[in-house]
């Protein structure tokens, strides 16, 4: 009898200790996850209730509004944006889709907007070039997935890559619901015998580093140009067309916020809860 009682007390004691510890540990865990899990399954998680209040984004969140109408009207504008970006960031050209690296490129409406069909839609829509790129999500699954914090959100809300920390596990590529990430399957710095670079037929931009093989890369919303007080190169490539508007979507007085307020826009895959910062006028 006595032995049983002692055993019971032991178990009860251990359970009590575990019981005290568990909720604290649990709430700490939850707190840490609050920012990461905001948005839930509801697309744009606006501050509708108090429960969501602490998820309110503070600080900057740079984003883009892409006016697809302009790209439909002005032939070659989308290609110009891609070319400007890829030249600016030394995006190598391997000449095959398997090794392809792309930061910003053109897709059709039904490819860019998964879950939205172009069935019985107007012809103009079917031919509309849609520029797609990293969405610099407010709640990026790639950042959550990265095991080394090699991809992270900077103070401007830009999802950045640290090419020197990336181990090349490609978990972020599996996690991104937009297919925005590319991997350096080969060495982009490879040269011919005469020293000429193989994958940069037009030379390289000395202002931006080339990458090494084995790391992931993607659009960085021209973080360096922004720091220098310039516009992102895709925005600059659009000139006065206003094809792409850039700015802080968390600043109510910014031009982009005014456009978002007054124009109907859509986002890619909002149901994934990532809260993308790239908006489209269709």
């Amino acid at each position: 009898m006595d032995v049983k009682r002692r055993k019971f007390l032991k178990i009860a004691g251990i359970s009590a200790i575990a019981g005290i510890g568990a909720p604290t540990a649990f709430s700490t865990l939850l707190k840490g996850e609050v920012n990461a899990s905001s948005g839930g399954g509801h697309g744009e998680a606006t501050e509708k209730s108090d429960a969501h209040a602490e998820e309110k984004v503070v600080g900057k969140q740079y984003g883009l509004v892409i006016n697809t109408k302009k790209f439909g009207q002005i032939a070659g504008l989308a290609e110009k944006c891609t070319a400007a970006c890829h030249a600016e960031h030394n995006v190598p050209d391997y000449g095959n889709p398997k090794d392809e690296i792309k930061w910003i490129w053109t897709e059709s409406y039904n490819h860019a907007f998964q879950g939205k069909s172009d069935h019985k839609k107007n012809d103009a829509l079917k031919n509309l070039p849609i520029l797609v790129t990293c969405n610099h999500c407010a709640n990026p699954p790639c950042v959550k997935a990265c095991p080394t914090k090699a991809t992270f959100k900077n103070k401007d809300g830009i999802v950045m890559m640290d090419y020197h920390r990336c181990i090349g596990c490609r978990f972020c590529m599996a996690a991104c619901p937009y297919g925005a990430r590319s991997f350096n399957w080969k060495n982009p710095r490879e040269t011919y015998a005469n020293g000429e670079m193989k994958f940069y037929p037009n030379g390289i931009n000395k202002e931006f580093p080339t990458r090494m093989r084995g790391v992931v890369e993607k659009c960085n919303l021209c973080a360096k140009r922004i720091a220098d007080g310039k516009l992102p190169s895709c925005v600059e490539a659009c000139g006065d067309t206003k094809g792409i508007i850039f700015g802080d979507i968390n600043d109510p007085n910014s031009e982009i916020s005014q456009v978002l307020k007054n124009t109907f826009t859509i986002q890619r895959n909002p149901t994934t809860g990532t809260r993308p910062s790239v908006f489209y006028i269709i």
Partner: peptide, 24 residues
């Protein structure tokens, strides 16, 4: 896992920069 890494020499970055949000 090591065979799959693009930068296998950096594998220990997972320990150097522990990231509890990552399932890896």
């Amino acid at each position: 896992i090591i065979a799959d890494l693009g930068q296998p020499l950096r594998a220990l970055n997972v320990l150097l920069h522990p990231t509890p949000s990552s399932m890896l």
